[in-house]
């Protein structure tokens, strides 16, 4: 089943003195349960593409469907709600809420979804167990290592039961051990829970783990490699 369908999207930034064509007719589909890396050199349009897939930005032209819903023309207020229930985000800088504990950070998104307190607490603890950081449940982000923080971020992204998870350079700030642990966890979640992951990355270790690699160059899909 297709989770994401991108049809010939372009993105032109006109705020600059010279218009910048960040994306130039990009098309692809991502199926449920994929573990996909979007790669390419800096400025190739990875982040722009992720922003559009995540409903954070609108394409200049083209069409984006998520779970058969066209989000291209969706209003910003509708997109916020759509993101909440359909897309999980993992950011390069973790972006946890520093004043909340690990458990509360994971719970927070379910609170926005108005999930019952008991249910959200149980799911949060289950996810932290799966991430191997249950013992850190009552600690603040500042008391965790970078790798642990990113695992909390993954747990938070999974907590809302999204259709897919978008991870923007998730390992950029991690050492090799933390990167390896994180990738292993995400691979397990993908294999066993059929979670769909889409990464933008420069990191060869992430690329090596991916089962599909979409390479962008100058805003176009240069190659789309599916590995077995």
């Amino acid at each position: 089943m297709s989770v994401i369908k991108v049809e010939n999207i372009t993105k032109v930034y006109t705020e600059t003195a010279v218009p910048v064509h960040a994306l130039n007719g990009v098309s692809f589909e991502i199926q449920e349960g994929e573990f996909t890396a979007i790669v390419g050199p800096s400025g190739c349009g990875k982040t722009t593409l992720l922003n559009i897939l995540g409903g954070l930005d609108h394409p200049t032209s083209g069409r984006v469907e998520i779970s058969n819903i066209d989000i291209t023309e969706m209003k910003d207020s509708d997109l916020i709600n759509f993101r909440l229930n359909n897309i999980g985000f993992v950011f390069q800088a973790y972006n946890l809420i520093p004043v909340l504990t690990t458990l509360e950070n994971v719970e927070f998104i379910m609170l926005l979804q108005k999930v019952d307190k008991k249910k959200r607490r149980k799911r949060s603890m289950d996810l932290l167990e799966q991430m191997g950081i249950a013992e850190k449940a009552n600690q603040r982000p500042s008391e965790l290592s970078g790798g642990q923080q990113q695992r909390v971020a993954v747990a938070r992204a999974l907590a809302s039961k999204p259709n897919f998870i978008l991870a923007d350079e998730p390992t950029a700030n991690l050492d090799s051990v933390s990167t390896s642990n994180l990738l292993d966890i995400m691979a397990v979640m993908n294999r066993e829970e059929k979670e769909t992951f889409i990464f933008s990355t420069h990191d060869q270790r992430v690329i090596d783990k991916a089962r599909r690699v979409i390479t962008l160059e100058d805003g176009r899909v240069k190659s789309d490699e599916i590995r077995e």
Binding site: G54, L56, S77, I80, N81, R83, L84, N85, F89, F91, A93, N95, I97, P98, I109, L112, Q113, R156, A157, S160
Partner: peptide, 16 residues
């Protein structure tokens, strides 16, 4: 700003 951006990105409404 980044934290607020994150909150809005993950689905916290502007009203909230």
């Amino acid at each position: 700003m980044r934290e607020l951006g994150m909150l809005m990105a993950i689905g916290m409404s502007k009203l909230r």
